[in-house]
């Protein structure tokens, strides 16, 4: 009796792996091979990594202590960097709102405007900010304005998408109730949908500002304003102490903006 039962459960015990067709198996194999090969393509090298450690220590010892010679100039440059991020983000947020309203499913009811707005936002989001910076340096010239525009476009790509999704997720009943009182659809959106989506808007905007602060540091490398160019010059002239003081200040700026974001988000979730 016992024997029979054992026999039966042996037969029905599922295998460890599901059977795959040989085609699937080949595809898995190709994918695995590609990953392995990619390490070569990426120049992965343990020996270089080994040699890099002492070089890094050498850099650190030569960069320490950070230089305080050009503190005021670097400080101003850091301030400019943050101002680029702030203005770019603010203008981007304002411009992304109409795009988000058009790009939120079922909010305005116009299919063609929905696709147009979604396409613009997707284009802005998928092209990297450094590429936008290169384009704006050509169109408006070297300097912080090019960087600000690049951040603005990047923010529209980010906020345009998440604002639209936030508005799609809102309970539609209050805005429908206003439409039932004879309100125009746009009034119902501004009076009922946007207030409900406001916490999500603010959270998204704070993330956008954090993101913008990090990119604004990099944009200087292509001449689009901000502290990035100072860092590059310091590195090119082997002025490592100056480079270190710039890095420390960048660190402080990004950290400060991040902490501000965390604090503000917590306030909003509680309130």
């Amino acid at each position: 009796m016992d024997n029979v039962r054992n026999q039966r459960s042996e037969d029905t015990l599922p295998g460890r792996f599901e059977r795959t067709s040989s085609l699937t198996f080949i595809l898995y194999f190709i994918a695995l091979a590609f990953v392995v090969w990619s390490f070569t393509g990426a120049g992965w090298s343990f020996s270089a990594l080994g040699q890099g450690v002492p070089a890094m220590l050498d850099f650190l010892s030569r960069a320490w202590p950070p230089s305080t010679d050009r503190l005021a100039a670097v400080g101003l440059s850091i301030l400019e960097t943050f101002q680029m991020a702030l203005v770019g983000t603010l203008v981007g947020i304002v411009l992304s709102l109409p795009l988000a309203i058009l790009g939120a499913k079922g909010l305005t009811g116009s299919r063609s405007l929905y696709f147009l707005s979604r396409s613009i936002v997707a284009l802005f989001r998928t092209v990297p900010d450094l590429v936008w910076a290169l384009i704006f340096v050509i169109t408006v010239g070297l300097g912080p304005f090019a960087g600000t525009l690049a951040i603005m476009v990047d923010t529209i790509g980010f906020c345009g998408r998440f604002f639209a999704e936030a508005m799609e997720d809102v309970d539609k009943a209050p805005s429908e109730a206003l439409v039932a009182t004879g309100a125009k659809r746009l009034d119902a959106i501004f009076a009922a949908v946007i207030p409900a989506a406001m916490p999500a808007f603010i959270t998204t905007s704070l993330f956008a500002l954090e993101k913008a602060t990090r990119s604004s540091v990099i944009l200087g490398l292509v001449g689009a304003g901000g502290v990035g160019i100072e860092l590059k010059v310091a590195m090119d002239f082997f002025d490592y102490p100056l480079a270190m003081s710039i890095i420390v200040m960048i660190f402080a700026l990004v950290l400060a903006v991040e902490r501000l974001g965390v604090w503000a988000r917590k306030k909003i979730i509680e309130g």
């Binding site: 009943a173 109730a177 039932a180 009182t181 004879g182 009076a191 207030p195």
Partner: peptide
């Protein structure tokens, strides 16, 4: 519609206003 008030079973107010 603006001359007709409509009261829903659930009030449908704007919650954050």
């Amino acid at each position: 519609r603006r001359e007709v008030g409509f009261i829903f079973q659930k009030h449908n107010l704007v919650p954050r206003a």
